Simulated assay, not measured.
Amino acid sequence: MSATHNHGHAHHGHSHGVTNERRVAIAMWITGGFMVVEALGGYLSGSLALIADAGHMLTDTGALALAWLAVRFARRPADDARSYGYHRAEILAAFLNGAAMMALAWWVIFEAAMRFMEPAPVLATPMLVVAAGGLLVNIASFWMLHGAGDSLNMRGAAVHVLGDLFGSVAAIAAAIVILLTGWMPIDPILSVFVALLILRSAWNVTRDSAHILMEGTPAGLDPDAISSDLVANVEGVVDVHHLHAWSLGSGRAVATLHARLAPLADAHAALAGIKARLGSHFDIGHATVQIEPGDCIDEARMDHKHDH
């Protein structure tokens, strides 16, 4: 059996990575700076909603720092130790961010349950002022991240900031209700509502990043459908097998496959056709293709075993 191997790469612009890095850094400093103000405001006012939001901001600052480092790492070129480069750094950061947010959401729910059993007084006026400032800060941070792409890493960071934004809205609503009615349970009730919203978003980011880390097949790619498509559309290809597809990072699908050719088929033309088809119809930017002019050696061995 003769084999031909070929690799293809898809690269993103250097300037795009630098822009994302700058946007994440600005969002990190904005969030981290106001986190101190909100924590102090929550402590002085006695508001669980503010304390929860300050906790979100603390994890946000860490999450944005991770995202910032991940963007820097992802721009580093491949080396002998990491031949695929550092794209997985972004996915690892997204996974850690999602897991941290899920843990924080459960902590808020637990604290809210404690507040129901032992109600605590809340100073609504300072709570309202701080929450309003937090809302403006979160809007600014979310706007910065919104223009920084749609990778899982950016999604993970944006989930944190979006959770904070919801937290600020909930804290404002709770402060207004307490000011108008004096009804204290609204504080833990809205805290739980926000925690559940965050839990759902954080779970999605954690699940998607874990799927990539486990080298699962990218969403929307069916190996059997790809094999059938290549046989039907690439001249000289009669069978495609051992096809595996996974992701290096968000939007960076890769694949390996064996392709058996018809007798006298042009191997170089078939190889070029396979790679072009994978790129144009399945958005697979990196492929390792093994061309087999005859039966697959694995199948030949199996047939030999059956004969005996």
Rank of each mutant, 00 (worst) to 15 (best):
S2E: 15
A3R: 14
N6C: 13
H7M: 11
A10C: 05
H12W: 05
G13V: 07
H16L: 13
V18Y: 06
R23F: 08
R23Q: 15
A25T: 13
A27I: 13
W29A: 08
W29S: 08
I30D: 00
G32P: 15
V37N: 01
E38C: 11
A39K: 11
Y43V: 13
L44Y: 15
G46P: 06
S47R: 09
S47V: 07
A49K: 04
I51L: 11
D53H: 15
T61H: 08
A63S: 15
L64M: 13
A65L: 13
A67E: 06
L69K: 06
A70H: 02
R72E: 08
F73V: 02
F73M: 04
Y86Q: 13
F95R: 01
N97F: 05
G98W: 00
A103H: 05
L104K: 04
V108F: 14
E111W: 09
M114R: 14
M114I: 10
P119V: 06
A120D: 12
L123R: 11
A124Q: 10
A124K: 12
V130F: 11
A132L: 08
G134S: 10
L136R: 03
V137C: 10
N138M: 02
N138P: 02
I139N: 11
F142P: 02
L145Q: 01
G147D: 12
A148W: 00
G149D: 08
L152Q: 09
N153P: 07
V159D: 03
V159K: 01
H160I: 00
V161L: 02
F166G: 03
V169R: 02
I176E: 04
V177L: 06
I178P: 05
W183I: 14
W183H: 12
W183L: 12
W183Q: 11
M184N: 06
I189M: 14
S191Y: 00
V194A: 03
L196I: 14
L197S: 03
L199R: 00
N204D: 15
R207P: 02
D208Q: 06
S209L: 01
H211C: 03
L213G: 05
T217K: 00
D222M: 07
S228V: 03
S228Q: 09
D229N: 02
D229C: 00
V231A: 07
V231E: 14
V234T: 11
V237N: 01
V238P: 14
W246V: 01
L248E: 09
G251W: 00
T256W: 07
R260T: 14
R260D: 10
L261F: 09
L261W: 05
A262P: 12
A265R: 14
A267W: 01
A267H: 05
H268V: 10
H268F: 09
L271C: 07
L271A: 04
D283Q: 09
D283F: 04
I284S: 07
I284F: 10
A287P: 15
T288S: 14
C296D: 11
I297K: 08
A300F: 06
M302H: 12
D307I: 07
H308Y: 06
